[in-house]
Nucleic acid binder design. Structure first.
Length: 960
RNA sequence: GCGGGCGUGGCGGAAUAGGUAGACGCGCGGGUCUCAAAAACCCGUUCCCACAAGGAUUGUCGGUUCGAUUCCGACCGCCCGCACCA
């Protein structure tokens, strides 16, 4: 008989709820209590309900939270609903329901499912990003972004009013491109170059120009630029939301088109986002993903002149002097530049192309424009391009080099133009080979020769380069940059792959921007007092399929009236914020969820932040985790928060795959195929669901995977084979859980059948938290048996307060206490559970259980299987919940045993074992080992050349 | 192509400052209890050999060492991320 988990789990969930057992203590009442902030990536309440991946995530943080409460920490462990945005809205449209109503229903379902797992959340802090009381502060933060700029001198965000002050004082001047820089004269520098003369002071600008300068500095700004438009979703997307030319949500094609959009100036923070990764205890792979995404490269910009003589002869000389700036990370190879390439979209292409090349160039540009990013990437191997007819002058040696356009140079990175050094860049090498361009080596390997069928891309020693010959690559770069700067033809610089964050969406279900636009489309922030700006209820919320957002249909809402503003014809911004907005700062709101005066009270923020443990999936590596760090840094600069980074320690739980499947491959006419003949195994959707497909290695024939049962296969030296047909090899693999594969495990069913405690335990016992692992429902029974056994041992067997424990049992109890604590803190839940099972197995053999042992086991089980533990604790005679009862302590003296077993090896092979007192001397031990009856035959008649005794580990005799 | 991770029984996985490989769970085999079954409990379970004795064994091959799952080198396979980023 198993214990009645359904009743017990319900009972304790109600107890915790009514007693508010897991309410975090407010800082002002916490005394000297140390804190732990344990956070989950809060869920999107999708229509699909809870996934076992959620269970893995939340069980892990719940165990940690419960453990730390028992260790005397003031634990903050909250949750909420990230309910705005595309995924939720897509579900709503698919189910033909209004997002507001649908979201409410989904939240209710998620809450029920989460509560049935017995998670120790502080429910008084539950937040919902779609609640106006919450998004009021999302809008407030947006206004902060809108009203701030990134100070180029102090490298931090400051208010726009401060910027205006600096400009009025002439501390800053305005450059010809509209950017703002420190006034060189105010720094005590003489204006030396002609450029400085072009910089203008604030008072020299018209009102319109002043507004343009300010708007150009804001951290939130509008820009008319080519963006990722997704027709199927009816909205634009951020770069981070586009994967291989398709939308992350839904996998729909994405195209580039110019549109006016809201952008956030995340690029200003590129260096800080990069550098501060070093402060974080995050998985190295995740940090690396962020580093790659930011994509910092150090190099130089070099200015090339376009050669006059090669251009249209009819033009006068004054027209010449057209310059092209290129970016390179290898300025040391400048002497090896034998041609130049512009991106097809480069604005100078039109100007420099000669009459005879015009037709070819235009044809190529058109061809490129018509191709999707996907197509362009597909044939990266095969270089294409066209000669413009123009030549550029290499500033270091006056060499005239031909200018090409080619789609392997992207307008979106660097300057959209490169100097091509085919000897030292593989792409340039391939292009040069194809177009028969000269290849000039300027770097020689430290050892060995230059390859003749590829570019030499490594570092080496400069050759054929007058100013830098003989220098190593690092030195040569330095020298070359110095020379370029001295001659005014280039300068050292840093480029990033990171682009500004496209922040507006043409969708209904998101936070409205707290912005109004005048007739010229200039943006103004509304008053803080007008927040929250509520999302109007409209019936027709569906995307229009055009760039016109659905909110524009709320005609009355769009019209903006404010008696204090004289301007007429103001209209509200009708775009909405993207799904990431609410999750960019939710971890702060948990600290102070009901504050109506500020997003968070600074005193509370100072106490709780940073997050001590953050657990979630790796899929947000360059989305939520990058965006939230960016917002946090802005809030840090503006004094809203006290820490430079929000999440100290972060762990990604590994993906839980579906159950392992076995597939045998057949040809279309039913012939047997071996695994080695089946290549490129992948999935394909068919009418009957998703099928496993493969290609025949020799015939390229399409092979169909036939699912076979585990019991039908057997293992051989090189894989599995079918029992019924030994020639047939079988492929064993686990797939991502998906509805179409029909391999989704349902938490509802599992809890009903095995109980929440057993499910939690199983998910934690499957393997290391961070590792990807296949699901196997069959295995849950083991955890179910363990819990029933604990129940029988502690609730049904006599518990004896006076029973003495044997030394061995006592030793094991204390070792278990130590190991479970260590493993839990290190998030090694699988081995912690194994120790608990071992201790319980010992108890099973006892006729009666010593009370201290029973209590300690109940306490140690509590973080993992809290319902059962509470019930047992109560039955052991305790009136209160064990949620805050002290974790058992171990006695180091009890860990030591009086004797030990030592393995005895002869020539490294195990031949016997001896049991000796722990304090036995080496000579003693060696004598005992040599005399052991198991060992003796292996030593007889041989010379012992060496005796090795590793203290408390083993004995090894080397014989000849 | 670049970067990161991984490879251990029938399955999930333990164990690495080098020291008894396979903890713990599943599955499987046998037993106890029972009229029977379930549940529970006990025993066994890496492979080879009928058993024992013995031998082999942590993807493959090699190296260092008294001793290698652990360290080094080469190779094979799988997974993840990035990718014409100049």
């Amino acid at each position: 008989m198993s214990y009645d988990f359904t009743a017990i789990e319900k009972k304790w969930q109600e107890y915790w709820k009514t007693h508010k057992s897991f309410a975090a203590i407010e800082p002002e009442r916490a005394g000297g209590m140390p804190k732990k902030y344990v956070l989950d990536m809060f869920p999107y309440p999708s229509g699909a309900g809870l996934h076992v991946g959620h269970v893995e995530n939340y069980a892990a943080t719940d165990i940690i939270s419960r453990y730390f409460r028992m260790r005397g920490f003031n634990v903050l462990h909250p949750t909420g609903w990230d309910a705005f945005g595309l995924p939720a809205e897509q579900y709503a449209i698919k189910n033909n329901r209004h997002p507001r109503e649908f979201t409410a229903a989904n939240i209710a379902n998620f809450r029920r499912q989460i509560q049935m797992l017995g998670l120790s959340y502080d429910w008084d802090r539950e937040i919902d990003t779609t609640d106006p009381k919450y998004y009021k502060w999302t809008q407030w933060i947006f206004l902060k972004l809108f009203n701030s700029y990134f100070d180029p001198v102090d490298k931090k965000a400051k208010s726009i009013s401060h910027l205006i002050h600096e400009l009025e004082q002439d501390n800053f001047v305005v450059a010809p491109d509209g950017s703002v820089k420190r006034n060189p004269v105010m720094e005590g520098m003489e204006a030396i170059s002609g450029d400085v003369q072009l910089e203008r002071k604030w008072r020299e600008l018209s009102v319109e120009e002043k507004n343009d300068v300010i708007d150009g500095m804001r951290l939130a700004y509008t820009d008319e630029a080519p963006v990722n438009w997704c027709p199927a979703l009816g909205t634009v997307l951020a770069n981070e939301e586009v994967i291989d030319g398709r939308s992350e949500v839904g996998g729909f094609p994405v195209e580039r088109r110019p549109m006016r959009q809201w952008m956030l100036r995340i690029t200003a923070y590129a260096d800080r986002l990069l550098d501060d990764l070093n402060l974080l205890d995050w998985p190295e792979s995740l940090k690396q993903m962020q580093r790659n995404w930011i994509g910092r490269s150090v190099g130089a910009e070099v200015d090339f002149e376009v050669a006059a003589s090669k251009r249209d002869e009819g033009q006068g000389d004054e027209e010449d002097g057209e310059g092209i700036t290129v970016f390179t990370t290898r300025p040391d190879t400048l002497f090896g530049a034998t041609y130049m390439v512009l991106a097809p979209e480069h604005p100078l292409v039109e100007k420099i192309t000669t009459a005879e090349q015009k037709a070819a160039v235009n044809a190529y540009r058109e061809q490129c424009a018509g191709r999707s990013e996907r197509d362009r990437m597909a044939d990266a191997k095969d270089k294409s391009g066209v000669f413009t007819g123009a030549y550029a002058i290499n500033p270091v040696n006056e060499a005239a080099i031909p200018i090409f356009i080619a789609d392997y140079v992207l307008m979106g990175y660097g300057t959209g133009a490169i100097m091509a050094v085919p000897a030292h860049d593989q792409r340039d090498f391939e292009f040069a080979k194809k177009f028969n361009l000269s290849i000039k080596p300027v770097v020689k390997p430290i050892k060995g020769d230059l390859p003749d069928d590829a570019a030499f891309e490594e570092e080496g020693t400069a050759i054929n380069s007058p100013v830098i010959d003989g220098l190593t690559t690092a030195k040569a770069k330095e020298q070359m940059i110095a020379a370029l700067e001295r001659d005014g033809v280039g300068h050292g610089t840093v480029k990033y792959k990171l682009r500004d964050w496209l922040f507006s969406r043409q969708r209904y279900w998101g936070e409205p921007f707290p912005i109004v636009l005048d007739t010229q489309e200039r943006a103004y922030g509304i008053d803080e007092a007008e927040l929250p700006l509520e999302l109007p209820s409209i019936e027709d919320y569906k995307p229009t399929g055009t760039p016109e957002p659905p909110l524009s249909k709320a005609k009355d809402w769009v019209k903006y009236e404010n008696p204090r503003i004289a301007m007429r014809g103001l209209l509200r911004e009708t775009n909405t914020m993207p799904q990431w907005a609410g999750s960019c700062w939710y971890y702060l709101r948990f600290l102070d969820p009901n504050n109506s005066q500020a997003p968070v009270d600074p005193k509370k923020e100072a106490y709780w932040m940073p997050v001590d443990l953050y657990v979630g999936g790796v899929e947000h590596a360059v989305l939520h985790l990058l965006y939230a760090r960016f917002w946090h840094k802005v809030l840090f600069d503006l004094g809203v928060v006290s820490q430079p980074e929000p999440f100290g320690r972060l762990v990604n739980q590994g993906l839980i795959l579906g159950e392992t499947e076995y597939h045998a491959f057949y040809t279309a006419d039913g012939n047997v195929v071996t695994a080695s003949e089946a290549k490129e195994i992948g999935e394909e959707a068919t009418d009957a669901g998703v099928k496993l497909m493969a290609i025949h290695a020799k015939t390229s024939e399409k092979l169909i995977g036939q699912r076979v049962g585990e019991e039908d296969v057997e293992k051989t030296a090189n894989g599995f084979r079918l029992k019924s047909n030994p020639n047939m090899r079988v492929d064993a693999r686990a797939f991502k859980m998906s509805k179409s594969r029909g391999n989704v495990a349902s938490p509802d069913d599992l809890v009903r059948e095995y109980g929440a405690d057993a499910l939690r335990l199983y998910v934690m016992y499957m393997g290391p938290l961070e590792m990807q692992k296949p699901w196997n429902t069959r295995d849950i029974i083991g955890m179910s048996r363990f819990l029933s056994s604990v129940w029988r041992n502690l609730a049904e067997k006599p518990v004896d307060a006076n029973a003495a424990m044997s030394d061995a049992l006592q030793g094991q109890m204390h070792r278990t206490i130590k190991k479970v604590a260590e493993d839990t803190e290190a998030l090694r839940f699988n081995t912690a559970i194994a120790e608990l099972i071992k201790l319980n197995n010992e108890i099973t053999a006892l006729p009666a259980v010593p009370k201290s042992l029973a209590e300690n086991l109940a306490l140690m089980v509590a973080p993992f299987a809290p319902h059962l533990a509470e019930e047992l604790w109560q039955r052991l005679g305790h009136g209160e919940s064990l949620a805050h009862y002290a974790w058992p302590s171990f006695d180091p003296a009890k860990l030591v045993e009086s004797t030990m077993e030592l393995p005895v090896q002869v020539n490294g092979k195990l031949r016997g074992k001896i049991v000796v007192p722990v304090d036995a001397g080496e000579a003693d031990i060696l004598a005992r080992a040599a005399g052991d009856s198991e060992v003796q035959p292996w030593l007889a008649g041989k010379t012992v050349r060496k005796q090795i005794y590793v203290a408390k580990k083993l004995v090894n005799f080397v014989v000849g």
